[in-house]
């Protein structure tokens, strides 16, 4: 019999981000997003930079994920991310500042060198954070009016 939920576990070297029973997960793989439902065939994939979405009940929640690996088992998904944050934890103002800084950096550096690569990585990171924060913030706000004030 197939399991009805997935045990989702997200860990980074620095902390244990999340462990929850969820109905569906979308993982930002290196080659594109992949959706996982309970009973998925076992799979290992490398992660890119993106947003991990998980569905619990009628709610969707978002996490940023930056590099790492994910293992999918029929009833369990383990995400070994290098960096991961929950949408609620993201400071949007700081991310916007980082975005601008990265853009300025890219404009200044010449394409292809180490500084440029660093800056474009920073830019990608900032963009993913912004997306997660706006989606997570707006989505959570609509479903849980109380939480939008925080």
């Amino acid at each position: 019999m197939l399991p009805e939920t997935i045990e989702l576990q997200v860990v980074t070297p620095e902390r244990h981000v999340l462990q929850e029973s969820v109905q569906a997960v979308e993982i930002p793989g290196k080659e594109g997003y992949l959706g996982v439902l309970p009973g998925h065939a076992p799979l290992i994939t490398e992660l890119g930079i993106g947003i991990l979405t998980y569905h619990k009940g009628s709610q969707a929640r978002y996490l940023t994920v930056i590099h790492g690996y994910a293992e999918v088992l029929p009833g369990r998904v383990i995400v070994l991310a290098e960096v991961s944050e929950r949408a609620e934890e993201i400071d949007l103002a700081r991310t916007l500042a980082a975005h601008e800084r990265a853009q300025a950096e890219i404009a200044r550096a010449s394409a292809g060198d180490a500084e440029w690569r660093q800056a474009s990585f920073a830019l990608q990171r900032a963009m993913v954070r912004q997306q997660a924060a706006t989606r997570g913030g707006a989505g959570a706000g609509a479903q849980e009016p109380g939480s939008s004030a925080s």
Binding site: M1, P3, G29, K30, E31, L34, A41, P42, L43, I44, T45, E46, G68, Y69, L73, P74, G75, R76, L80
Partner: peptide, 27 residues
């Protein structure tokens, strides 16, 4: 046992398992 799963099911890979393994070792 929780998920009644044989320990050695073959994986689906997005890329060769060897590549993933070589990526995991340094991590």
């Amino acid at each position: 046992t929780e998920h009644e799963e044989a320990p050695l099911v073959d994986y689906l890979y997005e890329e060769p398992l060897g590549d993933i393994f070589s990526g995991l070792l340094p991590r």
